[in-house]
Amino acid sequence: MIARKTALHANSIDWGLIRDLALYARHKSYAEAARQRGVTREAVYQNIKALEAATGLTLLDRSVRPSGLTAEGARLAAAGDMLLDVVQSVVVESGSDKNQQIRAIARQLSHLGHELRAAVGDA
Rank of each mutant, 00 (worst) to 15 (best):
L17W: 13
A78M: 08
V92R: 15
V87K: 12
V90T: 07
R103K: 08
Y30P: 13
Q101S: 13
G80V: 11
Y45S: 10
V39W: 09
R4P: 07
V39M: 01
I13S: 00
R103S: 05
S96A: 02
T55M: 04
R26A: 10
V91I: 14
A104Y: 06
P66Q: 00
V44D: 04
N99Y: 08
L84V: 03
A123M: 08
Q36D: 10
I105D: 09
I2Q: 15
E93Q: 11
V44E: 02
R107W: 07
L112H: 15
A104N: 02
M82P: 01
A104I: 01
A71E: 09
W15F: 07
S94F: 00
S96C: 03
L83D: 10
A7M: 07
V86F: 14
A50L: 01
V120R: 08
D122Q: 03
G16F: 04
G121W: 00
L23N: 01
G73F: 06
G38D: 13
L57W: 07
A71L: 06
R4M: 14
S94G: 13
I18H: 02
Q101W: 12
A31H: 08
Y30S: 13
E52Q: 10
A77S: 00
L60G: 03
T6C: 09
L17E: 07
D97C: 03
L83E: 14
A43C: 07
L57C: 07
L84E: 06
K98G: 04
L116T: 01
L23R: 10
E72W: 10
S89W: 04
D61C: 09
Q100G: 15
